[in-house]
Simulated scan of single mutants.
Amino acid sequence: MLLVLLLIGFVLPTTSDAQIFEDAKEFFTFYPNAKAVEKDSTLYPSKFIAAPVISFSPETDFAFGIGAKYLFKFAGSGEETRVSNMPITFQYTLNNQYFLYSGFEIFTNQEKFVITGNILFQNYPRLYYGIGRNTEESAEEVYEYNQLLVEPIFLKQMFHRYLFLGGGLRYNHIYETKVEEDGLIAQNMRDGFDGSTSVGLEVAALYDDRDVILNASEGWYVEFTHGEYGEFLGGTNKFHLTRLDVRHFFKVSEKNDDVLAFQFLGRTVRDDLPFSEYSFFGSSEIMRGYREGRFVDRDLVAAQMEFRKNFKNTRLGAVAFVGTGSVFNNIADFQFGALKPNYGFGVRYKIDKTENLNLRLDWGFGRGTNEIYLGIAEAF
């Protein structure tokens, strides 16, 4: 089970304790444009909120790093423009492994354009159990690799205030792989197990009318991408990758701002996909309770529901979540009886009231497994 410790405590909302927390939060908060805001009060005060993180897992040993959020608006943006969000995570382990990640959503002035995407650079192990939804826990082995993933998507506001259309490029390079001798990967030698480069052009559509990006209480988020991958720009495989992410949020209690949140996630890959492009089941965002990659196949569907309870006049909150999902080789193989359950609960501590930004600690349970997750901002 993954153990994650963050060097920030939960405190009672007394006046003195609240001030202690504010002082501690300010120590980890930086304001890149503070001088410019002093001269021009119409500018949004950008924030870089960081916190030290220590984690441990059997495959990595102890890891040390920083989790952070960069929140900003471009000059000239007012209340009509939502806050841009760039999370940044960096960790380094005692096994000389590293992990650097940023998933971003950037709004230009008046939200005429949106730039979303991911940047990932890592040398990190992945646990592998075989292909399919019925693999055994006893088949576990470690697959190590280096990865560089860059995926910028550029979208333009079109036809509707919250509808954005566009496209982008996805580059996923896997190299310097290491597999266990006589293990499943070495025996099967699936295409790309010893490295691959995926290069694809994507078309994308986004509908996003959430009230707050980091912790929405109302609105819809619907993202669709379809990529055609080929042997241009160094690509090693030809295949198609389609993804759909649908989320909905609404308040169930105006008094305490309690929220009910839903998400559906679908991913399908066709043709000559390399090993790195299979769909991996489980993560800190969806199907919490399963290690990422516990089940692997070409296609994935998953759904979750989360109740978010806020305690009035405090920074504390709590969540309860339940979900289900599975992987399969083809849509014809989908069976409701094969869906795997997950459920769990968590606590929240609001580290920034202005941005409604929470520190989250979740304990997720799957079928015969459980995991602990800690991070900044909600799972979805």
Rank of each mutant, 00 (worst) to 15 (best):
L5A: 14
T15L: 08
S16A: 15
F21D: 14
F21E: 15
F27I: 08
F30Q: 02
K39M: 11
S41I: 07
Y44Q: 11
S46I: 01
K47G: 06
K47R: 15
A51H: 11
F56G: 00
L71R: 02
G76Q: 09
S77A: 15
L94H: 04
Q97S: 00
F99H: 11
Q110Y: 13
Q110L: 10
K112R: 12
I119T: 11
I119L: 15
G130F: 14
I131R: 00
E137W: 03
S138C: 01
A139I: 01
Q147G: 06
E151L: 09
F154E: 10
K156Q: 10
Q157K: 13
R161V: 03
Y162A: 07
F164K: 05
L165I: 14
G167C: 04
N172A: 04
K178T: 12
E181S: 14
D182Y: 05
F193A: 08
S196Q: 07
G200A: 09
G200M: 03
L201H: 02
V203T: 11
A204W: 05
D208E: 07
D209S: 10
A216T: 04
G219A: 07
W220P: 00
E223M: 10
E231Q: 11
F232E: 08
G234R: 03
G235A: 04
G235R: 04
T236Y: 14
L244H: 00
H248L: 02
V252N: 09
S253Y: 12
S253V: 07
K255Y: 06
D258Y: 07
L260N: 12
A261S: 15
Q263P: 14
G266L: 01
G266P: 08
T268C: 02
T268D: 02
V269P: 00
R270I: 00
S276H: 09
S279E: 07
G282K: 03
G282P: 15
S284C: 07
I286H: 05
I286Q: 08
M287R: 12
Y290V: 04
Y290W: 10
R294A: 00
D297I: 00
R298P: 01
R298F: 01
A303Q: 05
A303S: 15
A303H: 05
N310W: 06
T314C: 07
L316K: 10
L316F: 13
T324R: 05
G325Y: 02
G325H: 06
V327C: 05
V327T: 03
N330W: 02
N330R: 08
G344H: 14
F345G: 15
Y349A: 12
K353W: 00
T354P: 01
N358G: 09
N358Q: 07
R360L: 12
F365M: 12
R367F: 03
G368I: 08
T369R: 15
T369Y: 04
E371T: 10
A377L: 03
